[in-house]
């Protein structure tokens, strides 16, 4: 199963555009990332620029409205993520616990929805089976 570990650094919601992480912290994180990689569990990871460089699109009344960051009402924002593949939620939590996090950081661990988690009607909709051709075409083994 897959989990996303969302890094939430307190204060990042107010960070100025172009805020960059401290090189010493990056070195520590790289070591952690390497341990995930060596264990064969890391699928992807990314760090995100602060919200002051982003924007939000809301859909009130079915109409998209764009608001530039920073977002005054936001109490916490995501600063980056890891996507990992592990055997259990406990294993995901164990990996998250090994992160060299600092006082202001929180990691939220969330399981990625798998196809098999969906009920049949949602699976059909997600698979687009309704508009698929019933293929009896070429038989490449």
């Amino acid at each position: 199963m897959r989990f996303m570990m969302l890094m939430i650094p307190k204060g990042y919601e107010k960070a100025e555009a172009g805020t960059m992480p401290d090189p010493k912290r990056v070195a520590e994180m790289m070591k952690y990332n390497e341990s995930l990689q060596k264990a064969g569990v890391l699928l992807a990871l990314d760090g995100l620029h602060p919200p002051s460089m982003g924007a939000r699109v809301s859909f009130t009344g079915g109409k998209p409205t764009i608001t530039d960051g920073p977002f005054t009402e936001a109490k916490e924002v995501v600063g980056g993520y890891w996507m990992i593949q592990v055997k259990s939620k406990a294993e995901a939590l164990e990996w998250a616990s090994r992160c060299p996090g600092s006082d202001n950081e929180v990691i939220e661990v969330r399981q990625v929805q798998e196809f098999a988690d969906f009920p049949a009607d949602v699976q059909d909709a997600a698979a687009g089976f309704s508009d698929m051709q019933s293929g009896a075409g070429s038989k490449t083994p």
């Binding site: 592990v86 259990s88 294993e91």
Partner: peptide, 8 residues
Amino acid sequence: AIDAVWRI
């Protein structure tokens, strides 16, 4: 948690 540690 111990199971997870064992796996790792």
